[in-house]
Simulated assay, not measured.
Amino acid sequence: MTNDAGAPLTITDVAQFAPAPVTTAAEPGGVGVAGLPMNFVAATTAQTRSGTLLGRPITVRFTPARVDFVYGDGESRTSTDGGESWATLGQASFTPTPTSHTYRTRGTYPAHATVRYTAEVDIGGGWFPVPGELAIDGSVQQVRVYEADTALVARTCTEQLAAPGC
Rank of each mutant, 00 (worst) to 15 (best):
T118N: 09
G126T: 11
T114Q: 12
T118G: 12
I123Q: 15
T102F: 02
I123Y: 14
F128V: 10
Y109N: 06
P131D: 02
G107Q: 12
T105V: 13
Y117K: 10
Y117M: 10
H112L: 14
G125C: 10
V115C: 10
H101K: 06
G125L: 11
F128W: 08
P131R: 05
P129F: 09
G125I: 09
I123P: 05
Y103C: 11
D122A: 08
A111L: 04
V115W: 09
I123T: 15
R104C: 00
P131A: 04
A119E: 12
P110Q: 09
R104S: 15
L134P: 12
P110S: 04
P129T: 11
T108I: 08
T108F: 02
G124M: 08
Y103E: 05
A111W: 03
T105K: 11
G126V: 07
I123R: 15
R116P: 00
V121Y: 14
R106C: 03
W127Y: 13
R106A: 14
S100Q: 06
Y117V: 10
P129R: 10
L134K: 09
R104E: 14
T105E: 13
W127C: 07
S100R: 04
S100Y: 04
D122C: 10
T118R: 14
I123S: 13
R106P: 06
G107M: 14
V121K: 12
Y103K: 01
G125W: 10
R106F: 03
H101N: 07
T118I: 12
G132H: 05
P110A: 08
G107I: 08
G126S: 06
S100A: 05
P129I: 03
A111R: 02
G124D: 09
P129W: 08
A119C: 08
A135S: 15
Y117F: 14
V115I: 15
D122E: 01
A119Y: 07
